[in-house]
Write a protein that binds this DNA or RNA. Structure first.
Length: 480
RNA sequence: GGGCCGGUAGCUCAGUCGGUAGAGCAUUUGACUUUUAAUCAAAGGGUCCCGGGUUCGAGUCCCGGCCGGCUCACCA
């Protein structure tokens, strides 16, 4: 007996049941059903004696001789059904007992409270809306195999309510972000995902071919250069929240397609973004989660503003000593080795310092922290700090030891922008986006810009340790 | 890419020293009008991830591969 045949036994049995139901006058795949309310709403507005219509999937069934109890789930909640032979009559009751777990039905009945105190609908009538030909995962343990959960998200959602909850929260967060930004006068825009030059970030793009123009195109790695064109054009508050694609590895915090929110506000700067993100995160925490503290990867994180702000050099000194910047390169390398931080031959002092920061300091910043005044070498596309041309006017927001959002006082000097592009192009051979540079030459107002990794934000807000748990269909290797 | 762990019935999992493949749920049949992991009785259900090897005999040991998880590294 093959696995396939065995699985088929369940299917065969359900097809037999389906035929019996059809003979009894219950077509297996019904039409639209008008319900009184969702099951969660019925629980909330429960009223003993009220007659209601509801529908959903049968997720539990306890059959007895002349009555049965079942549980219905419509994705919002579960609701118990009481099914009695003396109410339905012999044939309709017998047909009900032919239903399988997973079948989708519509019912009508009276809301009652059972002896054990559970809100229940005692049904007077029912119809089959859709037959399930395959068995559902087991009722008690549910579906736990992670691989199956990601590959068959439908089943995951059916059998794991907490998974459903995370994805509903995801939708609510996206909706609330839009509402928040719209309320501040931002326009949501859509810019190309198919780009002939993949700019705006340093990452490897996915490549595709466009037949009609016979050109290679790239899936975007960032919308930044297009959004700034809109700032030049006078749309002075814009945001885009959509997918970016990066042709890189896959791990607990990286998926090749991920959702990024980029925000640009003309006549603002990094400070504008700082206020915006604190207000926005607190707003989300308050309105959707009703709390300010979140458990994430073993830490309790408070989003209560104001968040800590520390200049990069001060942070380094805090961890490596006030005299750090008086040290020689050799001393810095020695310290790195002592800390078990791997440094490459030929790295300069700043690079070694940053490597140490990356490996030993960033991870310790659990509570929200703005790191400001970064060395310009680290951030090529930002404006200088007004008081120090060696530093750039940016912040990196770290939460839970992870980078959540960078923000810049955007570079709006087209000559300097061109110089930096040329330097970059010399390094990696990428084409320069001349149209973008031309736009800048018409004049871009001083602008604050920010990028937020939405998936990582959702990990924090929902307490998820893996990005796969906040993305409905994460990338997986194909199954053979 | 390296290391460690895992893949056995539809689902969740056991499987000892290499000796006939197990349980619970689910399914089928029967009993049962207040159950809720319903209960009771009986039955059916397996490509033990794939391919080689060792052996009289492999779910188990060895080699290779696939998929997944954790972790380190790389990339940013």
């Amino acid at each position: 007996m093959s696995e396939e045949l065995s699985a088929n036994e369940y299917r065969q049995q359900r097809i037999v049941n389906m035929e019996k139901l059809e003979e009894a006058g219950f077509p297996a795949f019904g039409k639209a059903f008008e319900r009184t309310a969702r099951l969660d709403e019925l629980h909330e507005g429960f009223e003993e004696g009220k007659v209601v219509k509801a529908c959903g999937r049968i997720v539990g069934m306890r059959k007895m001789g002349k009555m049965a109890f079942a549980h219905l789930n419509d994705g919002s909640a579960r609701f118990q059904l009481m099914v009695k032979k003396d109410i339905l009559g012999d044939e309709v009751f017998a047909a009900f007992k032919l239903l399988d777990l997973g079948d989708i039905i519509g019912i009508e009945g009276e809301m009652i409270i059972t002896q054990t105190g559970e809100q229940t609908i005692r049904i007077s009538n029912w119809m089959l809306l859709s037959k399930a030909l395959l068995p559902l995962p087991e009722k008690f343990h549910g579906l736990t195999d992670v691989e199956t959960r990601y590959r068959q998200r439908s089943l995951d959602l059916i059998s794991n309510p907490e998974v459903m909850d995370v994805f509903k929260k995801r939708t609510e967060v996206l909706r609330e972000i839009r509402r928040f930004l719209d309320g501040r006068g931002f326009y949501e825009v859509e810019t190309p995902m198919l780009q002939q030059i993949a700019g705006g970030a340093a990452a490897k793009p996915f490549k595709a071919h466009y037949n009609a123009l016979n050109v290679d195109v790239f899936m975007r790695i960032a919308p930044e250069l297009y959004l700034k064109r809109l700032i030049v054009g006078g749309m002075d508050r814009v945001y885009e929240m959509n997918r970016n694609f990066r042709n890189e590895g896959l791990d607990r915090t990286h998926n090749p397609e991920f959702t990024a929110l980029e925000i640009y506000q003309a006549y603002g700067d990094m400070r504008t973004m700082q206020e915006l993100i604190q207000s926005m995160f607190m707003h989300l925490a308050e309105t959707i989660f009703g709390k300010m503290e979140f458990e994430w990867m073993g830490n309790t994180i408070s989003l209560q503003a104001p968040w800590r702000e520390v200049a990069y050099y001060d942070l380094i000194k805090e961890h490596l000593g006030d005299d750090w910047f008086d040290k020689t390169l050799e001393e810095a390398v020695a310290k790195a080795e002592e800390l078990d931080v791997h440094v490459e031959q030929g790295m300069n002092f700043k690079e070694v310092t940053h490597e140490i920061y990356d490996k030993t300091i960033e991870g310790t910043l659990i509570q929200p922290t703005f790191i400001t005044r970064l060395p310009k070498e680290l951030v090529p596309l930002a404006n200088h700090c007004p008081d120090d041309p060696e530093l750039v006017d940016v912040f990196e927001l770290i939460i839970g030891g992870k980078e959540i959002a960078p923000a810049y006082s955007e570079l709006n000097n087209p000559l300097e922008q061109r110089a930096r592009f040329e330097e970059q192009a010399a390094g990696d051979g990428e084409k320069i986006d001349e149209d973008f540079l031309a736009a800048l030459e018409y004049g871009m107002p001083p602008t604050g810009g920010m990028g937020i990794g939405i998936d990582r934000l959702l990990m924090l807000l929902t307490g998820s340790d893996a990005i796969r748990d906040v993305i409905l269909f994460p990338q997986l290797k194909p199954r053979v």
